[in-house]
């Protein structure tokens, strides 16, 4: 599967497994900048694994992966760290530092890259995800939906070129899911490449009404472009 323009993420015959046989195999993919993709498939099909391969948390057992034209397996750990500053990730379990308030957690990507968060911009970003009243709350005090929105704010604070979201609406009611989707669509309109792993077909249908999104499906260890049934 290839798209027009300089690819931001490229997979070529990628395979991965956790020791009990391959989970993904022969995955070949090329995502253009500014594209919007949903990644779907049954639980355990390898959606999270695919995203982890995208930002180098997992290494493929076969094939090659390139991010912004650079092959991941040829990169040093520092290079991968720098690359991750261009890729925002909304993890399924959010991955916060529980001893830091939400404002500090959201600003963390800036902190670790040695930059100061502008207090006004930080407040605006947190307001954008609807968490103004939660600036000083610790992550364990937040509801699932609030955590997902805070994770989205942290993922975009570096103004990344790519946003990867792993089941971002998994803990949200429908109304909140639509609100989060609207944020993702808004980011895509700003030129960001978006990949959302989800098994929520209603969310995909709702998105297709707002944005030109393509749907990838993992089936029988392979990545396929889903058809019109969605």
């Amino acid at each position: 599967m290839s798209e027009q323009g300089q690819a931001v993420i490229e997979f070529e015959n990628v395979a991965h497994g956790y020791g009990g046989g391959p989970l993904l195999s022969e995955v070949t993919l090329s995502l253009a900048p500014g594209s919007f993709h949903f990644l779907t498939g049954p639980s355990g099909a390898g959606k999270s694994t695919f995203l982890k391969l995208c930002y180098g948390e997992l290494a493929p057992v076969a094939g090659r992966i390139a991010l912004f034209g650079q092959e991941l397996d040829a990169m040093s750990r520092d290079d991968i760290a720098r690359l991750r500053q261009r890729v925002g990730v909304v993890h399924q379990d959010c991955q916060f530092l529980d001893h830091l308030p939400i404002a500090d957690n959201v600003a963390l990507p800036l902190t670790v890259s040695g930059r100061d968060a502008d207090p006004t911009e930080l407040r605006e970003l947190i307001a954008w995800v609807g968490l103004t009243g939660r600036l000083k709350s610790l992550p364990p005090a937040l509801s699932g939906g609030e955590r997902q929105r805070a994770a989205l704010a942290r993922a975009v604070i570096m103004s990344p070129d790519v946003l990867l979201a792993d089941e971002p609406t998994g803990n949200l009611d429908w109304e909140m899911s639509l609100r989060l989707l609207a944020l993702l669509v808004e980011l895509n309109r700003m030129g960001k490449t978006i990949v959302v792993a989800t098994h929520d077909l209603n969310l995909i249908r709702a998105a297709k009404a707002q944005v030109s999104a393509r749907v990838l499906r993992i089936k029988d260890r392979r990545l396929l472009l889903a058809g019109a049934e969605l």
Binding site: E57, R77, D78, A81, L83, R84, Q95, V112, G114, R154
Partner: peptide, 15 residues
Amino acid sequence: QVIRVLRLIGARDAY
């Protein structure tokens, strides 16, 4: 877990 989170958001080993 803290170290893992920091790596995931782009912190270098030296940091």
